[in-house]
Design a protein around this nucleic acid. Structure first.
Length: 289
DNA sequence: CACCAGGCAAGCC
DNA sequence: GGCTTGCATGGT
């Protein structure tokens, strides 16, 4: 991959195993919007960028080489060897087909705090509304940043949210999840939950720690570990993955003691990525129900 | 064709 | 089973 400076941005030449539709639409993130021209724009690490793709060339606007190396290279997971990972995961025909379908998925290395709050909001909810609630939270408590003539907002840190109450959050219409957000703010600010430590703790310890927060159960915790901590060994199971796995691996599911355990045993260290391939494959092909 | 009522949705308590 | 909110659904 070659990084070239262009007017108001950079161009990445010869990027493989990466597709912006697959990556931004596979359900892992809530802060990216697709424009009519096919480009995506979004915010991470207090920067707003726009991304387009033409075959193996990626164009990132409103950035520079330095930010790419410091932020976007890691965020977009472009520093990983996906050809090796895919080879390791291609153990059966179903997974091979799923990888063939969502070949351009990369697991975004999202900011931990944002990821935690986002997946608390995701519980018993649908993507359009999750996105709306997060956007409201950012507009209300984040800082404005410009991208062209559009204004985006940063995701407010736990510190910036310190002291908020359920009533303060009423305008974002998070419903019963508002009290969970408040609990997350308090437990992170008090030091009870040390977010950065989660990246080093054994997976089950990290999960236990996260589940001390009201509104964080096994599924939300696994999502936070996978999408916010770079823990590819986490295999989040929601109703959709449950249905997809039962549909695609009926015999294996029958024997297994649980879908999460099955996923971990079948795909090992990179089962979290396997989960994304299955999810995208099943959903985009209407295999649910 | 509006309009409304009741069900229900990427979980957790 | 309840929880907020919003919306697709089918019945009127």
């Amino acid at each position: 991959m070659k990084v070239v400076q262009i007017p108001n941005g950079i161009q990445l030449e010869g990027v493989e195993h990466f597709n912006i539709d697959h990556t931004f639409l596979c359900g892992q993130c809530f802060r990216w919007d697709k424009n009519k021209d096919g480009s995506f724009e979004g915010v991470a690490f207090e920067k707003a960028i726009k991304i387009t793709q033409s075959n193996n060339d990626i164009f990132i606007y409103n950035t520079n080489k330095r930010d790419f190396e410091n932020i976007w290279l890691k965020y977009l997971d472009l520093d990983k060897d996906y050809s090796m990972i895919k080879a390791q995961l291609s153990k059966d025909e179903v997974m091979t087909a799923a990888i063939g379908y969502g070949w351009g998925i990369r697991i975004l290395q999202q900011e931990l705090w944002e990821c935690l709050v986002s997946f608390i909001i995701s519980s018993s909810n649908n993507i359009p509304r999750i996105k709306r609630i997060i956007a409201s939270l950012c507009q209300l408590y984040g800082k404005p940043i410009k991208l062209g003539d559009k204004t985006h907002y940063t995701f407010p840190s736990a510190d910036e949210l310190s002291g908020i109450t359920e009533q303060d959050l009423a305008p974002i219409k998070a419903g019963f999840r508002a009290k969970y957000i408040v609990d997350a703010v308090n437990k992170v600010n008090s030091g009870l939950i040390q977010l950065e430590q989660l990246k080093k703790l054994p997976l089950c310890e990290a999960k236990k720690s996260l589940m001390q927060i009201n509104g964080v159960g096994p599924k939300v915790a696994d999502c936070v570990l996978l999408f916010g901590c770079g823990r590819y060994g986490a295999f989040p199971v929601d109703v959709w993955i449950d249905r997809a796995m039962r549909g695609l691996y009926p015999c294996e599911c029958e024997k297994a003691c649980g879908i999460r355990e099955l996923g971990e045993n079948m795909y090992g260290d990179y089962c979290g990525l396997a989960q994304q391939y299955i999810f995208y494959y099943a959903r985009e092909n209407n295999m649910f129900k």
